[in-house]
Computed example of a mutant assay.
Amino acid sequence: MAFTVPTDVENRPVAVIGSGTLGRRIALMFATRGGEVRIYDKSKEAGEAARAYVAENVAEVAAGIEGGFPGRASVTDDMAEALAGAWLVVEAVPERLDLKKSIYGELDRLADPDTILASNSSSYPTSQFIDEVKHPERVLNMHFYMPPQQNAIDIMSDGHTDRAIIDLLERELPRYGVYPFEAHKESTGFIFNRIWAAIKRESLEVVAEGVSTPQDVDRMWQINMGTPAGPFRMMDHVGLDVVLDIENHYAVERPDLPAGPRELLKKYVDAGHLGVKTGQGFYDDYA
């Protein structure tokens, strides 16, 4: 079925569903051209924390984007209110397939007919959670990394996505300081995430085997690659619970993957050491 792409996008809000580590960063990027971003979260505390994060950072980030200027973020626990008039919805809820299926059924029912429905899923292709969606032609993956520092995006069709949506996003997203790259066929982990998954998994494995420590792996990475952080510090920033969810998903598809990385992550998650968001993960120097 053909889809009528949204128009007047500069004057319409973007909605972000979920206010976690990535949800708030996605909201930040879409607040850099003077418009409104609506953050939906059932938790008032989490939503307000995300709104405060956007307010604190948007002026600096917008200043680094050509034509950018600070917009605003609002928070609601009412899905219909969040979606009203939005040209784009970005879902950023936890990596649970049942939750995503339910969310997409609700988004498809409540969003305007020309609203694009995009998933920030780190590992699930959208083809796996459109069971309750009547208009799959407006659904696609749009996976962010860690904006505003890492600003590449994977975009990937759900198998039904109208080509005009991908073309529109390739034109519009760079105006917000983020840059889309299309996966031309369905790929678990998309493009860069597949490469990163292999690096992260082998890093975890050498620690699980007792060959090295998180700190030494990171320091070697920094020296050799010239980056400010290594794999373990980056996993702490993502959230070790999120990293474990992603690894569990890969393991379902690829049973031959080593169990050591998942077992190591589970020890930290079970202890409540999830990284930056809890103050301790592989490192314990987070204020």
Rank of each mutant, 00 (worst) to 15 (best):
T227A: 01
T227C: 00
T227H: 05
P228D: 11
P228N: 07
A229D: 03
A229W: 04
G230E: 03
P231D: 11
F232S: 11
F232N: 13
R233L: 07
R233K: 10
R233C: 04
M234T: 10
M235K: 10
D236K: 04
H237Q: 08
V238K: 11
V238T: 15
G239C: 10
L240S: 02
L240P: 02
V242I: 11
V243F: 02
V243R: 00
V243P: 02
V243S: 09
I246S: 09
I246A: 08
N248Q: 06
N248R: 13
H249C: 07
Y250H: 10
V252E: 09
E253A: 15
E253P: 11
D256R: 05
D256M: 04
L257D: 02
P258L: 13
P258G: 13
P258D: 15
A259G: 03
A259N: 05
E263A: 06
E263L: 00
L264R: 11
L265Q: 01
L265N: 01
K267L: 03
Y268P: 06
Y268D: 07
Y268I: 05
Y268F: 15
Y268A: 14
V269L: 08
G272I: 07
H273F: 02
H273A: 09
L274G: 10
G275Y: 08
G275H: 04
V276I: 03
K277E: 02
K277C: 01
K277A: 00
T278P: 12
T278M: 10
G279S: 06
G279P: 03
G281P: 03
G281N: 04
F282E: 12
F282D: 08
Y283S: 01
Y283P: 03
